[in-house]
């Protein structure tokens, strides 16, 4: 029995362009089989008990297996003119969907996992940043995050101190805003939309909204795929596979403030699919 708080959320289940092109995606959501396809010109998601609530946004198809507690979160930047929207595709990871999101919120691993790309020794220090759970939107936000990066983006030339903001608007989705190398006055926007196939298996759909007219699409996708494959080597080797929500199982530091807030937010809202509540 899955908690209604979990059932009433929105989850990504497919890339919209693929479904609209006629592809039929037979997949899973929260351990149950579902099918995503076009019927009479409309995208439908069908489960064992019938159709699910469906919406399309940010290049992806989203489904809610229960009764939606709220509309899907907005990403206003997706509508800004001049941005390139990039559907990166899918990376399957044998881990809890919550661990995949938490890793996306983490910067301290850059020098060790994304060596010489998103970070490099000796530039390992994580400066103090601010974290809050915004009451109006009920989202986790981390702001004033800075980190030295040798190659922050495909369009970056040489090392820069990159500024970041992180946002968790849904239990299995996160969005980051980072310094745009091509336009210092704007933010590049990168999201990961995580489809919980089960509590210990997920499909991760990265998505980007960038100011970058120069880099070929294939290179943008290859860059992001490389980053996520590096992350996968970590995510598939964390013990336990579920995300521990009880303090005591894992030891955080000041650099983990976003992760701490994310875990508290999940626990408070009862979004425990993919979480471990009692230390094993």
């Amino acid at each position: 029995m899955i908690a209604p708080e979990v059932m009433n959320e929105w989850y990504p289940v497919a890339m919209a362009a693929q479904i609209c092109a006629g592809q039929r995606r037979v997949t899973q959501l929260l351990g149950q089989p579902i099918t995503v396809h076009v019927q009479d010109g409309v995208i439908v998601v069908t489960g064992q008990a019938g159709p699910l609530h469906v919406t399309e946004a940010f290049g992806h198809v989203w489904a809610c297996p229960g009764t939606p507690a709220h509309p899907l979160f907005p990403i206003p930047e997706a509508l800004e003119t001049g941005r390139r929207l990039v559907d990166v595709g899918v990376v399957r990871v044998k881990c809890s969907p919550l661990r995949a999101v938490e890793n996306f919120l983490d910067i301290a691993h850059f020098p060790f996992v994304h060596t010489d790309v998103l970070g490099a020794e000796p530039h390992t220090e994580v400066n103090r940043y601010e974290v809050q759970i915004r009451e109006d939107s009920d989202e986790v936000w981390a702001t004033k995050v800075t980190f030295y990066q040798p190659q922050a983006a495909k369009s970056a030339e040489g090392g820069i101190v990159t500024q970041y903001m992180y946002r968790v608007p849904a239990p299995t989705a996160a969005v980051l805003y980072k310094t745009c190398p091509a336009r210092p006055d704007a933010w590049d926007v990168i999201g990961i939309f995580v489809q919980p196939l089960s509590e210990e298996l997920c499909d991760v759909w990265p998505w980007m909204a960038l100011y970058d007219d120069a880099t070929p699409q294939a290179e943008l996708i290859a860059f992001q795929q490389m980053i996520f494959l590096q992350d996968r080597s970590i995510l598939e080797n964390q013990i336990p596979r579920l995300l521990p929500l009880d303090p005591g199982m894992e030891i955080p530091t000041q650099a983990d403030l976003t992760s701490i807030a994310y875990r508290r937010w999940l626990k408070k809202r009862g979004l425990t699919y993919g979480a471990q509540m009692v230390a094993a």
């Binding site: 080797n237 013990i239 894992e250």
Partner: peptide, 8 residues
């Protein structure tokens, strides 16, 4: 297991 985030 690293006590920080459970990595092998």
């Amino acid at each position: 297991r690293c006590p920080h985030r459970g990595m092998r």
